[in-house]
């Protein structure tokens, strides 16, 4: 199992749109390695692409940290996007669908949140933004939650 960590854990730069291609490939391979289903892989890679583009466009670039996480028998992947950009003043507004301060369809943050199992964001204006997402493999979907 420590062998997979070596191939999963990584720090990847987010400096150009070409970095996004490499980043998507790494996340895809890592998720496949940990036993994510094709749909779960696709969701996580898409979320990663959205968040990395946010880091690039709004944060002025930064980096992605990829880590393997374990909880009991469940294998997961934690992605941490960080930048030293201007930060987000109104987080609630940024997470709402349709809000966009740049390119895209305004689905970036809110959309990415729906594609992963856990999502957290920490942003300080003038200091930067850190977005952390986690998704799990080999775990059947939980019974219905009280989400509307």
């Amino acid at each position: 199992m420590s062998g997979t960590a070596a191939r999963v854990d990584a720090r990847l730069p987010i400096r150009s749109d070409r970095d996004l291609v490499w980043l998507r490939q790494h996340v895809r391979q890592a998720a496949a390695l940990l036993g994510f289903s094709l749909v779960e892989q696709t969701k996580l890679v898409t979320a990663a692409s959205e968040l990395a583009r946010n880091t690039l466009v709004h944060g002025g670039g930064g980096e992605l940290r990829v880590e393997q996480v374990t909880e009991g028998a469940a294998q997961g992947l934690r992605l941490t996007f960080s930048d030293q950009g201007p930060g987000i003043a109104d987080l609630e507004q940024a997470l709402r669908d349709g809000f966009t301060s740049g390119e895209g369809l305004g689905m970036g943050l809110g959309g990415a949140r729906r594609l992963v199992h856990a999502f957290s964001i920490d942003s300080t204006p003038g200091v930067g933004t850190v977005v952390t997402v986690t998704s799990w493999a080999a775990r059947p979907p939980r019974p219905r939650e009280g989400r509307s």
């Binding site: 969701k43 809110g110 959309g111 729906r114 594609l115």
Partner: peptide
């Protein structure tokens, strides 16, 4: 469009 891509797009709200 592949099924996984279609599902993801819908979940994304697109």
């Amino acid at each position: 469009m592949r099924p996984a891509v279609a599902l993801t797009l819908v979940e994304l709200g697109l």
